[in-house]
């Protein structure tokens, strides 16, 4: 049975997705730890299936300002990967890489923005590498793009992208903490339905009723 709505995902398939999230985020955490030379821990990744208006509230409300780094997936998987960073994470990252901190988002200059994009790019690529070797998928990633703006506007990008297929959004999300300090950053993977089915097939859980 092919999935055409997120509600059709059964417990085994959700577990498989969670496992992908764990492996992807685990690898991304190792990469992050290498870049910022700090211990990085991950929380247990979640699969969240939320309607649009609920999804906006998980990131501190639609008007909360965040820095988002987006990469488009194509090939065996099509969809979007988003890495969202909030101020506390940005300061931990910039402090380790450039020895500077900021108080507001408009203090981010070209160099610090570029550093944050690169951190996002490294984490997303590592995540995808781990996933593609696990499931035998060939995925190419676009050049990363950054947007510092309202969380609602950023999250509307994947919502609109899948808007013709669904009224809900599925996010595989992983959160990280650095040096025992809880900092807010989230890595979201959002495949389209065709890719989701393909990925579940490759993981051997595509046809469970």
């Amino acid at each position: 049975m092919k999935i055409s709505s997120y509600d059709q995902l059964n417990a085994i398939q959700l577990d498989a997705l969670k496992e992908i999230g764990t492996i992807g985020s685990g690898n991304a955490a190792t990469a992050l730890s290498g870049v910022i030379s700090k211990k990085v821990r991950i929380s247990v990744p979640k699969v969240s299936i939320l309607d649009f208006n609920t999804a906006l509230n998980i990131l501190g409300g639609p008007e909360n300002i965040v820095a988002g780094i987006m990469v488009r997936m194509s090939g065996d998987l099509n969809g979007i990967m988003l890495y969202l960073q909030e101020m506390d994470f940005i300061n931990v990252a910039l402090d380790s890489v450039l020895h500077e901190t900021i108080n507001s988002y408009d203090q981010l200059n070209e160099l610090s923005q570029s550093a944050l994009v690169e951190i996002g790019n490294i984490m997303i690529s590592t995540y995808m590498n781990a996933l593609s070797s696990l499931a035998g998928l060939e995925v190419s990633l676009s050049v990363p793009a950054m947007c510092i703006n309202m969380a609602g506007g950023i999250l509307s990008v994947p919502m609109v992208e899948f808007g013709y297929e669904t009224d809900k959004i599925m996010m595989l999300d992983g959160s990280f903490s650095c040096d025992g300090q809880e900092v807010s950053s989230k890595l979201l993977m959002m495949p389209d339905f065709k890719s989701l089915n393909y990925m579940l097939d490759r993981l051997g859980v595509g046809n469970i009723d």
């Binding site: 988002g68 488009r72 676009s142 050049v143 990363p144 947007c147 509307s156 990008v157 992208e161």
Partner: peptide, 18 residues
């Protein structure tokens, strides 16, 4: 009707300029 992310090569895709 903004374009939040500017991914090179994305501008002409159906989603890029939504």
């Amino acid at each position: 009707g903004a374009k939040m992310f500017d991914i090179p090569g994305d501008a002409n895709s159906s989603v890029g300029n939504i």
